[in-house]
Design a protein around this nucleic acid. Sequence first.
DNA 1: CGAATCCATCAACTTCCACTGATCAACGAG
DNA 2: CTCGTTGATCAGTGGAAGTTGATGGATTCG
Lengths: 115, 115
Amino acid sequence: MHSCGVTNTAIDLTRAARLFHALSDATRLGILQMLGDGERCVCDLQGDLDAAQSRLSFHLKVLKDAGLVTDRKEGRWSYYTLVPDTLGETHDVIRLLGTEQSKGRRLKIFGRCCG
Amino acid sequence: MHSCGVTNTAIDLTRAARLFHALSDATRLGILQMLGDGERCVCDLQGDLDAAQSRLSFHLKVLKDAGLVTDRKEGRWSYYTLVPDTLGETHDVIRLLGTEQSKGRRLKIFGRCCG
DNA sequence: CGAATCCATCAACTTCCACTGATCAACGAG
DNA sequence: CTCGTTGATCAGTGGAAGTTGATGGATTCG
């Protein structure tokens, strides 16, 4: 399924890093928090987050590329929604990092592991 | 307690963003994963992650500044350890983001909220 | 149709990150 | 004391990321 040479149980650190990067901005976290209340159009977010339109559009794209939100067009509006699965995935990564779990699950991307 | 004007129950998005930034790099995630097995000195990490010394030192500092790891000196070695509480904090942020929880918990940093 | 609204995208600019190579301090061994 | 090792820090560099303002497409309304 996956294209990289990572074992099933290992965390895909590259993928995880991309997810965390999408979360590493207060504006984007603010967007996600608002979406926690349900679907929102960009103009709603604009008002509530007090952010310029192009700025918001930029951050929404980052979130969408990371798979954290999806959008839906209706008339001239774009409605954005959370993708719970991706948040769940992120959740899992942290849980795995925290516990003494990684024995025998080294990944390949760093070469020298699993030795 | 906190210096900012955020309510108790609200997520501190600025703080959260800083945490996620520290997690947004594959090398740093690799470090955390290794530390999941227990304390490590820098030279161990160097070998296992195949990273230059100054590069590793840089990333360890990022993790330390974020409160995700602590270090301890012994002789010429520096040993790094996970800080489970901080990982737990991160964990909580994601859980709060994912659920329909944020009602009435808007934060101040965006001005127009809580209105 | 023409005007207004919603939003994505673009160019230009600035700021921030990560990496490299070098230096330096601290410590231990011979 | 001298040398090798560990690891922090610094300066320089290239590239990525974020912001702003402007443009343009799509849609709706008068």
